[in-house]
Design a protein around this nucleic acid. Sequence first.
RNA 1: GGAGAGGUGUCUGAGUGGUCGAAAGAGCAAGCCUGGAAAGUUUGUAUACGCGCAAGUGUAUCGAGGGUUCGAAUCCCUCCCUCUCCGCCA
Length: 423
Amino acid sequence: MLALQYLRENTEEAKLRISKRNPKYVETIDQVLALDEENRKAKSEMEKNQSEANAMAKKIGELMKAGNRAEADVLKAETAALKESGKALEERSKQFEQELFDVLVTLPNTPHESVPVGQTAEDNYTVFQHGEIPALQEGAVPHWDLIKQYDLIDFELGSKISGAGFPVYKGKGARLQRAMINFFLDEAVAAGFIEIQPPLLVNADSGFGTGQLPDKEGQMYHATVDDLYLIPTAEVPITNIYRDVILKEEDLPIKNVGYTPCFRREAGAWGAHVRGLNRLHQFDKVEIVQIAHPNQSYALLDEMVIHVKGLLEKLELPYRILHLCGGDMGFTSALTYDFETYSAAQGRWLEVSSTSNFESFQANRLKCRFKNKEGKNQLVHTLNGSALALPRILATLLENNQTPEGIRIPKALVPYCGFEMID
RNA sequence: GGAGAGGUGUCUGAGUGGUCGAAAGAGCAAGCCUGGAAAGUUUGUAUACGCGCAAGUGUAUCGAGGGUUCGAAUCCCUCCCUCUCCGCCA
């Protein structure tokens, strides 16, 4: 959620920036500002009324104390009108406030000035590419055939137990999952991130804090009996640790990492290109989260990019980094880099990490602030990135490393899984 | 799940209808004191929003929401959380 104060004081800048997503939002900003003005006016009237009522009550109190009952009763009668107008004014103010809020939450974050203009994935800009695209052997097959051949994952079993998109990992498939999780966690800890094990179900306040609610309500599994949501990413519980918190400036940056399963309904997303591990309802991911001083957030974003690059290089996977265009970025992000690995047998790039700076967009919802040098509370910046999401890494790894003798495990993972080949 | 107790500012803790944004102490910050520090002493010490060039001022906030009342930290209702005992249990 954009800060009202920012919109009021930097209207032109905000409009310019948000146009990169879609020029239609310029109008929304005007609408917000108009509602804000009416809201403030209504509030001001209400407060004035309240002030009068408070003064009156005080006077009655004094009269009562002095034993002047008769005069107090006269005043009491006078408060009736104030009370009535107060009720009406309050209702009106509440209405404006709700209206303002409803419009404000539909505004996405303002893109960073470096973000490319564009509407679709076609307009994303490749900023970096690394690694050889492997020339596969004759008869190379996509990962969904490999997992059957080597009995690594059973999708039918998952369907039986839960439904489509809930894979059952078996034998070396399961061990490889565990190995990757530990590898990713260890790498992040070595890079200075503190490991967190958060809850996998969160309440609605947390969903709102990171921006899943109300925007993406339908994308989360909702346990309605207890009104809890299954997390779509560790970003949600970990970032919400800092909801309603005032940090010390010297605490920043806070660096956290967490492994969690992620649950996504992916409503409407099924169709082409979702075979095998490409899209799942439940998958594993290691997520890094940072709470940062506004001055340092972009430097920290660069650090995160370097960290993710290091992971992919240790896994010996060819990858590229996309600077997402305004129209393709997530609702809450100001700048996003997507990492994609090249899955050779499918002949496709697969997104394996999304690394973003949200600036103060989430912090404003979270009310996460720090006390700055002037002693004023200031919104922090939040950042996060996948480091990394497992299924598509696994898909790429299986496809790219297949040989007639079996599937070769990258050296970095061998100490973690305890085998060099899947055969 | 059952029974009971409780949730007050950075912390401890007082406050059962009126001048309470809230006693007192601790902590923290600044001044005095000191060669410097400790001790002592004085002062200050929440957040959000509105109005104002500013000094300042208005409103709200004592777990959350609602209600009673001219007036609520204090009374009533609902919910959340914590603790103790019992039950259940990985």
